[in-house]
């Protein structure tokens, strides 16, 4: 699976292969490397949904605990057909939404629709934050994936488990929202 030469940083694919088939000590080292390498990505995804460090940490743990179950002996092994981040994104996003639901259940006065709840702005007074808070979760996450995490469209489609055409039309709708919004209109007029 991997053509990594000795001494080189192993690719994600090589690390996943070791987690699937390696000896226990090597598999554990490979998993820890994957964790260290992708921890910031998962935290960014979680924080973009949650905006709460403690909940984001719980989502981080849940993401990698879930990933672990894909590897033997509990799992069948992970078959990586796209970039590792594309595989990781839906796992991290679902873990974040799950944490959000748990937090909301602990506060029953709040609504339970994640599309309404999945954004707690760190700076609710800024124009940009107000705008992002108004976007649906679908549109907000495609803005985050495309413009903050810099993922190409094919990877975004893989991450969201939708066809590339659907991802493009969703992005188009989000960009149109931003273009027409009073808060961000000025950026397009320059």
């Amino acid at each position: 699976m991997s053509n990594d030469a000795p001494g080189r940083t192993p690719s994600d694919a090589a690390l996943v292969a070791t987690c699937n088939d390696g000896e226990p000590a090597a598999a554990m080292r490979a998993f820890e490397t994957l964790y260290e390498r992708h921890k910031p990505f998962v935290l960014r995804v979680a924080l973009n949904v949650l905006h709460d460090h403690n909940l984001a940490l719980d989502a981080l743990q849940e993401t990698f605990a879930s990933l672990l179950t894909r590897f033997p002996p509990k799992g069948e092994g992970l078959e990586l057909r796209a970039k590792f981040t594309s595989f990781l994104y839906p796992v991290a996003r679902n873990a974040a939404i799950s944490q959000l639901r748990k937090a909301r259940q602990a506060r029953p006065d709040d609504a339970a629709d994640p599309d309404e709840l999945a954004f707690v702005s760190p700076d609710p007074d800024s124009d940009l934050e107000r705008l992002l808070a108004r976007l649906s979760l679908e549109r907000r996450e495609i803005v985050v994936l495309r413009f903050i995490l810099d993922l190409p469209m094919a990877d975004i489609a893989e991450a969201l488990e939708i066809p590339v055409g659907t991802a493009k039309s969703r992005l188009h709708a989000a960009v149109t929202d931003l273009r027409n919004s009073p808060e961000t209109k000025r950026f397009f007029e320059k």
Binding site: L47, L57, L60
Partner: peptide
């Protein structure tokens, strides 16, 4: 506007390492 990710992750680091050790040693 992206939130900083310099969150202290020591607790989760330990817990994930323990989960991995348990999983792969099975």
């Amino acid at each position: 506007r992206e939130l900083p990710t310099d969150v202290i992750t020591a607790r989760v680091d330990r817990e994930v390492a323990a989960l991995a050790a348990e999983h792969f040693a099975a």
